[in-house]
């Protein structure tokens, strides 16, 4: 990590930056495994805590539910969710944003934090695959990936700088389709919104997003999607309160597994 900006106004941000710096120097790798068990089994743990969870946009709905359940089981813990493009979130954490847990839609952004000495031993907790999304009714008659090359259609894709965009590029290359996108959005939820508003005829999003969008969006399975798997890693960031490790253990545990499966995520 290079020069840290000294403009962080919130005391929390400052504390995190200092803690992260120390952790980085001392390489004090907090074993998530050992630390997590007391947090998980102790709904009555001492001090009230607030943990801030940075989660990939595709996790928005699942993590809303996970946070609700976790807060229910741990009344003294307040979970604050911040979702966005994984790359943007990782960048914010590197710049000193006060995150305690980071859940990424791909391993790349998580690696950014590991390299920066901010996270250790991330665990993959879910997988996701892409699906074609079309507005309800599918007026453009989209049937497969090849339709993404039709110039007369309005197509939205994720920008390649975010995981769903990287996965989309891989899937399209594998199918030898040269897409003609009309917009490259900065996160998958922005793409999904364009579909549900009917502003675009087709888009590539995660199957979980199609599920989350309900009736407004129809999903179309595409061959080859199963071979382009996004693996979702999660980690409590170094220096975070114990409750952060507790939340991670909850997400990776059976209760979390159930919520994620319901939302359409695959097992790790």
């Amino acid at each position: 990590m290079r020069r840290m900006p000294r403009l962080a106004l919130g005391a929390g941000a400052l504390a995190l930056a200092v803690a992260a710096g120390l952790a980085g120097c001392a390489a004090a790798g907090a074993g998530t495994g050992t630390n997590s068990s007391p947090a998980v089994s102790a709904p009555t743990d001492a001090a009230p805590a607030t943990i801030t969870v940075f989660a990939a946009a595709s996790l928005t709905d699942a993590f809303d539910e996970l946070a609700r359940q976790y807060e229910h089981a741990h009344p003294n813990v307040d979970v604050v969710l911040n979702s966005g493009g994984s790359a943007a979130l990782a960048q914010q954490v590197v710049e000193g944003a006060p995150a305690d847990v980071f859940a990424s839609a791909a391993e790349g952004p998580m690696q950014t934090l590991v390299d920066a000495g901010l996270a250790t031993d991330p665990a993959v907790f879910a997988t996701n695959t892409l699906q074609l999304a079309v507005p309800a009714g599918n007026r453009a008659g989209v049937t497969g990936l090849a339709d993404l090359a039709r110039a007369e259609l309005r197509i939205a894709l994720c920008d390649e700088s975010v995981p769903c965009g990287a996965a989309s590029a891989k899937l399209l290359a594998q199918a030898r389709v040269t897409a003609s996108p009309d917009t490259l959005e900065s996160d998958v939820r922005a793409v999904l919104t364009k579909v549900s508003l009917g502003e675009v005829d087709a888009a590539l999003v995660y199957r979980t997003d199609v599920l989350a969008a309900g009736d407004a969006v129809e999903g179309i399975d595409v061959p080859g999607a199963a071979s382009v798997v996004n693996r979702y890693p999660i980690a409590a960031l170094d220096g975070a309160p114990d409750a952060a490790a507790g939340f991670v253990a909850f997400v990776t545990g059976p209760a979390g597994r159930a919520v994620l499966a319901e939302a359409g995520f695959g097992a790790p």
Binding site: S161, V162, D182, T183, L184, E185, S186, K194
Partner: peptide
């Protein structure tokens, strides 16, 4: 409203915002 496509709708501020995610 306009989206973000290089050369068509990706203006300087949008390019700057997107670059922040991959190439600060």
């Amino acid at each position: 409203f306009a989206g973000s496509l290089p050369g068509v709708t990706r203006t300087l501020p949008i390019a700057s915002y997107l670059a922040m995610q991959s190439d600060p």
